Computed example of a mutant assay.
Amino acid sequence: MKKLSKFIMSTSVAALFSACGGGGYPPTSTTISTSKEPIAIVSTLVNGVDYWQNGSAVAGGKDIIFDNVTCLTSEDYHIHSHLTIIRDQTYLAVPANIGLQGCAYELHTHDKSGVIHVETSKYKKFTLGQFFAVWGKALDSKVIAEFHDVNFLIYLTDGDGPVRYFGNPKDIELLDKREITVIVGIPPSSLPTYIWQSPS
């Protein structure tokens, strides 16, 4: 009887977690197939169709801080993460020149490749939520930019992967060569794979 009770309880917890989707996401497998033809991450890459204007949606400059992200003073610490946004199977290009309003912020983009530049005087933990703050767009478990109350899926690739992410997207750390794929609405049949070509 005790074994049966434990089984029922564990099954119920698993069902509840699945129904919750781990933070507002629809239940699905933690793995997904990837494309066989990798995309080279270079400055000339336009990773999707234009959807947003280039630059940030908010004014910036000296003494203006966005979620603890400031104008950079030096770039002794310089790494890159990559962001892909897919809405209903269509890739939306992350705009160029985010975080370059009034000054160069510690988090910024140069082009439409999806590369997020992390540049600062020494290591600091930066998150996707901070990048969206610099961009001037909303980000949490229910809202991504202009997309509200729709199904979100997020995958992280750190060398191996991709691995499904179930937490709050604003907490995702921007690690070197980490690939972050955000899926809004209808998911694609497979996720992109990338080859890093040492962006400057």
Rank of each mutant, 00 (worst) to 15 (best):
Phe66Tyr: 15
Tyr194Pro: 04
Ser33Tyr: 10
Glu146Pro: 00
Ser198His: 08
Asn151Leu: 12
Leu83Asn: 03
His110Trp: 03
Ser56Trp: 06
Phe66His: 15
Leu100Asn: 14
Lys170Phe: 10
Gly61Asp: 04
Gly61His: 13
Ile41Ser: 08
Leu16Met: 11
Ile186Trp: 07
Cys20Arg: 10
Ile180Ala: 00
Arg178Ile: 05
Ile64Gln: 13
Gly21His: 02
Ala93Val: 01
Pro38Ser: 09
Lys6Arg: 07
Gly23Ala: 04
Ile79Thr: 07
Asn54Tyr: 08
Leu174Asp: 04
Ser189Phe: 14
Ala133Cys: 02
Asn151Thr: 09
Gly61Val: 14
Leu4His: 03
Tyr105Trp: 11
Asp158Glu: 14
Gln101Phe: 08
Cys71Asp: 06
Val118Leu: 02
Asn151Phe: 11
Glu146Asn: 08
Asn47Ile: 02
Gly99Pro: 01
Met1Lys: 11
Asp176Tyr: 03
Leu16His: 04
Glu179Thr: 08
His82Met: 11
Trp135Pro: 00
Gln130Pro: 00
Gly48Trp: 07
Val115Gln: 02
Gly22Phe: 12
Ile65Asn: 07
Leu175Gln: 09
Thr31Met: 08
Val134His: 00
Val46Asp: 02
Ala40Trp: 07
Phe126Tyr: 12
Lys124Val: 14
Asp140Ala: 03
Pro187Cys: 14
Lys125Gly: 05
Lys137Cys: 04
Gly167Val: 15
Ser141Asn: 05
Gly167Phe: 15
Cys20Met: 14
Glu179Cys: 01
Val49Arg: 10
Asp67Glu: 13
Gly102Glu: 08
Leu156Gly: 03
Ile86Met: 12
Ser81Asp: 07
Gly102Cys: 12
Gln53Lys: 14
Cys103His: 13
Ile195Leu: 12
Thr127Tyr: 01
Asp149Glu: 12
Gly55Thr: 06
Ile98Gly: 01
